[in-house]
Design a binder for these strands. Structure first.
Lengths: 154, 154
DNA sequence: AAGATTTTGTTGACAAGTAAACAAAAGCGG
DNA sequence: CCGCTTTTGTTTACTTGTCAACAAAATCTT
């Protein structure tokens, strides 16, 4: 029983990995021209307040160097532009251009489509069941995060 | 409610991504010298019958080219060796050396440690609940795989 | 058996991201 | 205010893995 549980969880993990890889390599079909990471970056800039390289890198779990390079490309594509604030002459902030906004919303739309596909799937369960699953997954997620944090300490 | 569900699932997905990245970059702490992908490859060779580049690449969702290069490295490290069979002069098969076997078992051990950590976590739930979660996650995993397959077709 | 097609493994050019070193600016303690 | 430390962003060298082209072997068709 417990063995089955681990197998199942590992199946799910593999599925997620497959999804990540698929999205990473095939890019968003609707929004060709942007990689999945660039999309995440655009999403980040659209949602975070005064986003800079450091904040974005933390949010996407990437290095500052990696973000720095990506943003350079996005500037080249005309998706984002930089701005500064008088309070700080060192930090560089980013904001979406009109094109960036368009990409952002197109991405949101894709998200919603995925969500509605998921909703279709969830219909087979009762409200109470979904509530339980929600709680279970949330807790398991926290458990994993703790385990990973412990791993990093070692 | 449904909104919460999607948020929760996306949290889980992010956690898995975090785990993958963490493992990929920090490698297995116990088995330094091998990346997580190399470990998967070793695991694969230890479990599959007559493993060759093609089979391994399918199992790890990677390209043949990538596997080919990785195996070259593993040969260099003395972890695996090749063999052929009279039936087929084209295919090249791989097997673990004694060192490879040692790495394989060390990895298995790490797996078990993770599992026992998980078991500790699962104790808070009842048998019936776990059974339901098992079924839910399994079904959701299948649902996602289908969605990804559809995406690839487009 | 011979020719055409597919499968298999390898390679080179490329893309994405890391780690580490660095300069400039900001923050802090006396 | 001045020196020391930290933060921030960039760049360089490197690693990992993809894609696409290729040769050799295997398989299929007739």
């Amino acid at each position: 029983m417990t063995k089955n549980l681990n197998t199942t969880l590992s199946t799910l993990l593999n599925t997620f990995e497959l999804i990540n890889n698929t999205l990473k390599n095939h890019a968003e079909p609707v929004l060709s021209g942007y990689t999945i990471t660039e999309m995440h970056c655009i999403e980040c800039i659209g949602k975070i307040e005064n986003p800079n390289v450091t904040k974005i890198s933390q949010s996407l779990n990437m290095t500052r160097g990696g973000i720095s390079k990506m943003l350079k490309k996005l500037i080249g594509k005309g998706t984002v532009i930089t701005y500064t604030r008088d309070e700080n002459k060192k930090e560089v902030y980013y904001t979406l251009t009109d094109l960036g906004q368009a990409v952002f919303h197109a991405h949101e739309k894709i998200h919603q489509e995925w969500n509605s596909k998921d909703m279709e799937f969830f219909k087979q369960f009762e409200e109470k069941e979904i509530k339980f699953a929600l709680n279970f997954i949330q807790k398991y997620s926290e458990h994993l995060k703790k385990a990973i944090a412990d791993l990093k300490k070692e």
